[in-house]
Design a protein around this nucleic acid. Structure first.
Lengths: 209, 209
DNA sequence: ACTCGATTTCAACGGCCGTTGAATATTAGT
DNA sequence: ACTAATATTCAACGGCCGTTGAAATCGAGT
């Protein structure tokens, strides 16, 4: 593995744990096992390093989410896919990635959760990295719910986004709350519940008219 | 207003914007218009100041949420309240507080959203400040959905928590995504959609059995 | 007027921060 | 073997960090 990648990995892990401001370049380079100044040879600045961390996996994630959506649509040449299928194409790739390279993606999802909920970064960064794909998904949902207004669609997606990012942040909150009955890391439980829960929400808003 | 309160207000605003690590005690005291060392006269440490910021409004919020739930239950002496009513008792107080003292609570909700999604703080802090009340609400939901397993109840609440905190974080994300069709700050739109969306999710999980 | 505690100011501590420039080592092409 | 680009090391810069102790000010009770 190249040094640049080791730096990105270390930065990803630490940023995910303590946030952008909570981590120093020195800590990152220490965990990467390289000299501090190498950070500024491979990246323009701390902020640039952070952006590259975000970008690296965002592209891959967008790719496989898009493919999952296209696969669902191919299975429905005539009619529209169900809301559950579309939401599944949005969430299942996360589960697949975790199953394949658990540690790597776990940190990334934690990072995205914090970004999404930060007023400083959330608005702009999520838009920059994920908006085209999200618009594509909302387009598919619009076809599945033809009576649903755009306003309802956007708000429904917003609720989905909050539930999704918190769930994949694996903060351990639900473990404490449920006294161990539920575990943050139990992806099977999430898989069988989240799409059902969210699809019902979408339908309930669409049905209000 | 006492100096201690001015420090808490400044800390709340800045922590909500840039997170715990992103703000220095000097910045806080500068915004509060007081000398740096006064922070350490009124509080034990930066971390203690942070805890007091969290605690101050958590108590008030828990109070009025509990009263809202009790009011709902009083309206149903024989049968159980509906899921919508219970969720409304959980979310409406946030809207009321924003309507009454907008700036003050806006910053606090932003802060809570970041805490909730942080692996470093989320698990423990949310548990410490909000768990007793949340357990009370889940108890009410259990009565409204007698066929719902505890596991489903906890996961449903978890999805609710993610949607709720992101929504009240007002990051501007939905403004960008919807190209202005929806606005983060549009509390009327949230009020007429969120309880419906979430209650449908609860019901969908309960109905799987 | 005087005291005594609560509050505020002032100056400073060691330490880590992001970043840089120059010197050195490594690698690939000729 | 020489060169030229790429990669890495070393030492340092000014600046801000959290925190502290001692001195000054203020305010209420006598």
């Amino acid at each position: 593995m190249t040094t640049r990648d080791r730096i990105l990995d270390a930065a990803e892990t630490l940023f995910a744990q303590d946030g952008y401001a909570g981590v120093s370049v020195r800590q990152i380079m220490s965990q990467a096992g390289a000299d501090v100044s190498l950070a500024y040879y491979h990246f323009k600045s701390k902020r640039d390093l952070f952006d590259q961390v975000m970008l690296r996996r965002a592209e891959h994630l967008n790719d496989i989410r898009l493919k999952a959506l296209e696969a669902v649509e191919k299975r429905h040449p005539d009619d529209a896919p169900t809301v559950e299928e579309i939401i599944g194409a949005f969430t299942n790739p996360l589960l697949d990635l975790l199953a394949a390279d658990h540690e790597e993606w776990k940190h990334y999802f934690r990072l995205v959760a914090q970004i999404n909920n930060s007023p400083e970064w959330g608005g702009e960064l999520m838009t920059r990295y994920f908006d085209p794909l999200v618009r594509r998904f909302i387009g598919a949902l619009r076809k599945a719910l033809p009576d649903c207004s755009d306003e309802d669609l956007y708000w429904s997606y917003h609720f989905l986004s909050g539930a999704l990012t918190l769930t994949f942040a694996e903060t351990g909150r639900i473990d404490n709350l449920s006294s161990g009955v539920c575990r943050s890391s139990d992806m099977a439980s999430i898989n069988e519940r989240m799409p059902t829960f969210l699809a019902a929400g979408f339908r309930a808003l669409a049905a209000r008219e």
